[in-house]
């Protein structure tokens, strides 16, 4: 349903993004979706003259994804957000908030990811 959606592997990601930069595309944002079967979908959105071009990268939950913030600096915020909310393992970010951009230490880790939440009663053994 999404126009101009291309499925790529994570090895292709950096070279594809580099070629988008070369073609003068604007980085819009990236979206992360937990598909529920142990995989995360990361969709990178680019814009040229109000036409979107999207790349979908499918990775396992603990797999490393290279950061594109060295090519598009503005991806820093969204990569930190995905790392915190979904537990996506993004490496080599230009600014790394270390999981404290939106959440604090007391919060549940990766709240947007689909996971079994076990609430332990205080004092229970």
């Amino acid at each position: 349903m999404i126009e101009n959606l291309v499925e790529i592997s994570k090895e292709q990601l950096l070279s594809q993004v580099q070629s988008m930069k070369y073609d003068n595309y604007r980085f819009v944002t990236a979206s992360c979706v937990d598909t529920g079967d142990g995989y995360l979908d990361v969709i990178y959105h680019f814009d040229l003259d109000l036409e979107l071009k999207n790349f979908r990268v499918r990775v396992k939950k603990d797999e490393e994804v290279p950061s594109i913030s060295k090519i598009y600096f503005c991806s820093v915020l969204v990569e930190n957000e995905m790392k915190e909310l979904f537990g996506l393992n993004v490496t080599n970010m230009a600014i790394d908030y270390g999981g404290h951009m939106l959440l604090s230490d007391d919060d549940l880790a990766n709240p947007m990811a689909k996971q079994q939440i076990v609430i332990e009663k205080r004092g229970a053994k």
Partner: peptide, 15 residues
Amino acid sequence: LERLRVRTPTFANIP
């Protein structure tokens, strides 16, 4: 909905 993702304008303007 399975996922609703919002990228607001200020998020893009902070850089």
